[in-house]
């Protein structure tokens, strides 16, 4: 099993996301994360899908997705030639004693504190998945109350 990141450019038609996710579920392909958003041309939507599978399954995924009428383009975003970013919001329990510790961990990771309450705070972190995983592991010692991750968006480097 290997992980692959696919970048799709699709026609911004009604139901396009459900057509794509439906294809994955009915053919038994896994979706680790999926993100979608408008592009510079409002007719198109950019979708980034992280999926897992054997080589032949990944090849089938690429072909089956390419076959969908709404899909203009699908390509693999290879780690060495792409930029991936994910946004993560983490709500952590924090008291006066623990707050400074959290601040310094956040600073090391260049995370932002976006909300502070008497007994909790929310940290915003952007990065690739491994950075976010590492950060979550670190703040594990403080009590994590909630996590919201977006899944990655990605672009290939260069032209």
């Amino acid at each position: 099993m290997q992980k692959k990141v696919f970048q799709l450019l699709v026609d911004n038609n009604a139901g396009v996301l459900s057509r794509i996710s439906g294809l994955f579920s009915r053919r038994g392909y896994s979706i680790e994360s999926i993100t979608a958003g408008a592009t510079e041309d409002p007719n198109y939507t950019r979708i980034t899908i992280v999926t897992l599978g054997d080589e032949d399954v990944l090849e089938q995924i690429e072909k089956q997705v390419a076959k969908l009428v709404d899909v203009r383009d699908i390509r693999e975003l290879k780690p060495e030639s792409s930029v991936y970013r994910e946004l993560c919001l983490i709500k952590v329990r924090s008291t006066q004693e623990t707050r400074q510790g959290l601040f310094s961990v956040a600073e090391v990771f260049r995370a932002k504190i976006v909300d502070v309450n008497v007994d909790s705070l929310i940290i915003e972190l952007t990065g690739d998945q491994s950075k976010i995983d590492a950060f979550i592991a670190l703040v594990q010692d403080y009590e994590i109350l909630e996590i919201a991750r977006t899944g990655i968006a990605g672009l290939g480097r260069g032209l």
């Binding site: 032949d56 090849e59 089938q60 072909k63 089956q64 390419a66 076959k67």
Partner: peptide
Amino acid sequence: VDPAEIGKNCG
């Protein structure tokens, strides 16, 4: 005519 059929069941 369907590229997805090629290689689906055999290489």
